[in-house]
């Protein structure tokens, strides 16, 4: 029940966040009124397909959205203070110290012209003003912490000399160097092989416990979410369509999009006879979004009322869903069974 929590128990509260990309021809609302909270010490996952706005949401928190993107509204409360009111200098003191971030591509996220050590040192220099020797000592400790074998050798190597998994460990070492309270992980394992992914997820979980961090995990991989998150936000076309604890999302999904997403994923632990259930059509282009519910054109249950945008409503379990089916205004089939098509 994330949203009924009192604010001091939430490390992060995002309210009605809006991030828009301005081009000469159009305005694309990549993040369109997103609200959710991250309870202290918990892991919240944001899932969605490409174009859902999940990555822009995560970049917005640290105010790292590149031009022509701009945060145009809402608030991002970190420990009660709105990050959108902070000056650039104040933000710099938060980035890498209180909130850290790791990215999808460990191959390209490290600077190819500096050694691993130099790149970790930098975090200590910026936030703790450490000199070369003491920064190096701390960097070595960090490399050990993230499980890099023979750190004394690795510290002087360049990123291209390391494997993908090792590089992601180095990214984690940089991110966790100053003991942040919140780690934002944007698709941290997408570029990695399954056996390496298992290692990295295990490492993040392990370090989260050791360092008492909260984690925001952005991913498109439902399996990763199921294994690591406490709460899950499902995004579609810039909006959250469902927010719930992880068990509810997977065992009793409410929104037809969540249901469709779960059932179109071919499972690896059982066989499906015949065709996979599919969500028909494709994600609408961001400049031609439907006026009402964004998912209505692809939804099997859509009715007249879906031409009006539904609100994100909290149900009796404390979970949230953005769908007319669960309101008393529903004008479609009263017997609609959203979960019927699921095979489990």
């Amino acid at each position: 029940m994330p949203n009924t929590n009192k604010s001091e128990e939430n490390i992060l509260e995002i309210n009605n966040l809006q991030t828009t990309f301005f081009t000469e021809e159009s305005e694309v609302k990549a993040v369109d009124g997103v609200s959710f909270t991250i309870p202290k010490g918990k892991t919240v996952g944001v899932v969605g397909e490409s174009g859902s706005g999940k990555s822009i949401t995560s970049l917005s928190i640290l105010r790292l959205v590149d031009k022509p993107g701009k945060i145009v509204g809402g608030e991002i409360k970190f420990k009660g203070e709105n990050l959108l009111d902070k000056s650039e200098t104040e933000m710099r003191k938060i980035r890498g110290k209180e909130i850290s971030m790791i990215f999808q591509e460990p191959m390209t996220s490290l600077n190819p012209t500096y050694t691993v050590g130099q790149q970790i040192n930098e975090a200590f220099k910026i936030h703790e003003g450490l000199g070369k020797t003491s920064a190096r000592k701390r960097s070595l400790e960090m490399l050990k912490l993230v499980g890099i074998p023979s750190p004394e050798k690795r510290i002087d190597q360049y990123p291209h000399e390391l494997s993908g998994g090792m590089r992601q460990r180095v990214m984690i070492a940089i991110a966790l160097a100053c003991n942040p309270e919140l780690l934002i992980a944007d698709e941290p394992t997408t570029a990695l092989d399954v056996t390496i992914q298992a290692q990295i997820l295990e490492l993040i979980k392990d370090l989260q416990q050791k360092l008492h961090m909260s984690v925001l995990l952005i991913t498109h991989d439902l399996g990763v979410v199921a294994e690591t998150c406490d709460y899950v936000a499902v995004m579609y076309c810039g909006k959250i369509v469902e927010f719930a604890d992880v068990k509810s999302i997977f065992n009793n999904p409410q929104h037809p999009y969540t249901v469709g997403l779960l059932s179109s994923l071919p499972p690896h632990d059982r066989d499906i006879e015949g065709d996979l259930p599919v969500i028909p059509g494709a994600v609408p282009s961001p400049d031609e979004l439907p006026v009402g519910c964004r998912f209505a054109p692809r939804c099997a249950h859509a009715s007249d009322i879906c031409n009006t945008l539904p609100n994100l409503v909290t149900n009796e379990n404390g979970n949230q869903v953005r769908c007319w089916i669960y309101s008393d205004k529903w004008d479609g089939n009263p017997e609609v069974e959203v979960n019927a098509e699921r095979t489990t």
Partner: peptide
């Protein structure tokens, strides 16, 4: 400037001057 590691440098909290001269220019 569009590369991922520039974003990493900013996410570390590096000053814009450091980002430009230390991280971007050398590459």
């Amino acid at each position: 400037i569009d590369q991922d590691y520039i974003r990493t440098a900013r996410a570390k909290g590096a000053k814009e001057r450091v980002v430009v001269y230390r991280h971007a220019l050398k590459n």
